[in-house]
Amino acid sequence: MIEALFFLFAAMAVGAAINVLVQKHVLYSALSLIVLLVSMSGLFILLNADFLAVINVIVYAGAIMVLFVFVIMLLNLPEDEDGADRMRWLKFLGIPMGLFLLFMILATLWNAGADAGVQAQMPGSPEAIGRSLFTDYLLPFEVTSLLILIALMGAVVFAKKEL
């Protein structure tokens, strides 16, 4: 049952991810990205990380993607016609980086293959996540929140030239 669901969500995620790249229209890409995020949440639930799954939907699919769609609608971008030509040089950078990323993922998977007991131990409850955020990962957590605060202030400065 869980295997079947895993393959369902995994296939949805991969299909949506490919669709994000293939689609000519930005809005369709954004919609595929939402499908990708929701199916990733499905995978999180299968890993007993319910909290992460729901937060993923709230933050990414519900808030950030709504803003993406909002901006796409406001700008009313034309279909991607000559954009690919201007960005041609990017493939000299993109292909090696993609290969490097693939290598990293394969190496990680290769090493992690034997450790099957991870799923049962994974602390996915809100309480466990909160505890580890405020004890083991306190410094990264505080640094991230500082970063978000700076970004927030930056957004205000950009939006209002004179305060």
Binding site: L27, L31, I34, V38, D50, F51, V54, I55, V57, I58, A61, G62, A63, M65, V66, V69, F70, M73, S125, P126
Partner: peptide, 25 residues
């Protein structure tokens, strides 16, 4: 009875906004 029921409600209802935006667009 989900142990994260309240967050589930918030998450699912935040998806519903998309339909309204997309319909308008």
């Amino acid at each position: 009875d989900l142990n994260i029921g309240l967050l589930y409600v918030l998450a699912v209802s935040s998806i519903g906004i998309l339909g309204i935006i997309l319909g308008g667009w």
